[in-house]
């Protein structure tokens, strides 16, 4: 006679099936998180309108085809770029040849001096991508540190740790990421 109890399903091979699936996903999985430097491209220019920016407000960075760096007409090394940009943007001594500052009212921050400086980045078609990213990295770092300074002064925490969206917006306004990339042209030397 058949037993009245519900027959038990043999679950012994369950583990095997699960293992098989597990191995499949283990193999196909790619754990790489996409990271990178985010930038916003400028809209295309309609006609050749010259932007009217005073010379003192522009920080010229040039990367040659042989990956050499020229900052404000002088050959320099990438290691000093970050400090140079920070000094240029803050203009601590209110020097005549460094950018003007404008007193602007920003919500949550009050009246604050905002630099009118713009970093102009120009590269050759022969510049290596690695060098270009290095330069972009230094520029990002410089602006990041400036934002950190403002953020610490007003809110006591670094910009990256600032959670409040309104505060973040305010700091971003106080230190705008003023990087301008020149219209491409061959600046010589291949």
């Amino acid at each position: 006679m058949a037993s009245r109890e519900t027959p038990e399903v043999n679950a012994g091979s369950m583990a095997d099936i699960a293992f098989l699936l597990l191995i499949f996903f283990l193999v196909t999985t790619t754990m790489d998180i996409d990271t990178g430097i985010t930038r916003k491209l400028p809209p295309p220019v309609e006609d050749d309108t010259e932007m009217d920016i005073r010379d003192r407000n522009i920080f010229k960075v040039l990367v040659s085809s042989s990956d050499q760096l020229m900052v404000e007409g002088d050959r320099t090394d990438i290691s000093t770029l970050r400090m140079d940009v920070k000094e240029f943007m803050t203009n601590p001594g209110n020097r005549e040849d460094l950018p003007e500052k404008e007193l602007r009212f920003i919500e949550n921050l009050g009246d604050i001096e905002v630099s009118k400086g713009v970093v102009s980045l120009k590269n050759d078609r022969g510049t290596s991508y690695e060098m270009y990213i290095k330069v972009q990295n230094e520029l990002t770092a410089a602006f990041g540190e400036l934002r950190d300074e403002v953020s610490i002064r007003f809110y006591g925490v670094k910009f990256t740790n600032l959670i409040n969206d309104d505060y973040r917006k305010a700091v971003r306004k106080a230190v705008p990421m003023a990087i301008s990339e020149a219209e491409p042209e061959n600046i010589g030397g291949n």
Binding site: T35, G36, I37, T38, R39, P42, P43
Partner: peptide, 11 residues
Amino acid sequence: GAFKINYSSRK
């Protein structure tokens, strides 16, 4: 008009 870009790089 695809202005938002990201230069993929390793940290």
